[in-house]
Amino acid sequence: MPAKSKAQQKAAGAALAAKRGDIPKSELKGASKSMAKSMTEKELHDLAATRRKGKPEHVGKH
Rank of each mutant, 00 (worst) to 15 (best):
M1C: 03
M1G: 07
P2K: 08
P2S: 05
P2Y: 00
P2V: 01
A3W: 00
K4W: 01
S5A: 11
S5H: 06
K6T: 05
K6V: 12
K6N: 04
K6L: 09
K6R: 13
A7P: 00
Q8V: 07
Q8A: 13
Q9C: 08
K10D: 14
A11G: 10
A12L: 05
A12Y: 02
G13Y: 02
G13Q: 12
G13F: 01
G13I: 05
A14N: 12
A15L: 02
A15D: 05
A15W: 00
A15S: 04
A15E: 03
L16R: 12
A17L: 11
A17V: 06
A18R: 04
A18F: 03
A18D: 09
K19I: 01
K19S: 04
K19H: 03
R20T: 05
R20I: 02
R20K: 15
G21V: 04
G21M: 03
G21T: 04
D22V: 02
D22C: 01
D22Q: 11
D22K: 10
I23Y: 03
I23H: 05
P24T: 07
P24R: 04
K25C: 08
S26I: 07
S26M: 06
E27V: 08
E27N: 08
E27Y: 03
E27I: 04
L28H: 06
L28N: 05
L28P: 07
K29L: 08
K29E: 14
K29F: 08
K29P: 00
S32R: 01
S32H: 01
S32C: 05
K33L: 14
K33Q: 12
K33R: 15
K33H: 07
K33G: 03
S34Y: 09
S34Q: 13
S34N: 11
M35D: 08
M35L: 14
A36M: 11
A36V: 11
A36C: 13
K37L: 13
K37A: 15
K37H: 07
S38L: 13
S38W: 05
M39T: 02
T40K: 12
T40Q: 10
E41D: 13
E41Y: 04
K42Q: 15
K42S: 13
K42P: 01
K42A: 15
L44V: 06
L44T: 06
L44Y: 02
L44A: 04
H45L: 08
H45E: 14
D46R: 14
L47T: 07
A48G: 09
A48E: 13
A48M: 08
A49H: 10
A49D: 14
T50Y: 03
T50F: 02
R51Y: 02
R51F: 01
R51W: 01
R52V: 07
R52A: 15
R52K: 14
K53R: 11
K53W: 01
K53N: 12
K53V: 09
G54M: 06
K55P: 00
K55V: 01
P56L: 13
P56F: 12
E57D: 15
E57S: 12
H58M: 08
H58I: 11
H58G: 00
G60H: 10
G60K: 15
G60I: 09
G60W: 10
G60M: 12
G60Y: 13
K61L: 13
H62M: 10
H62S: 12
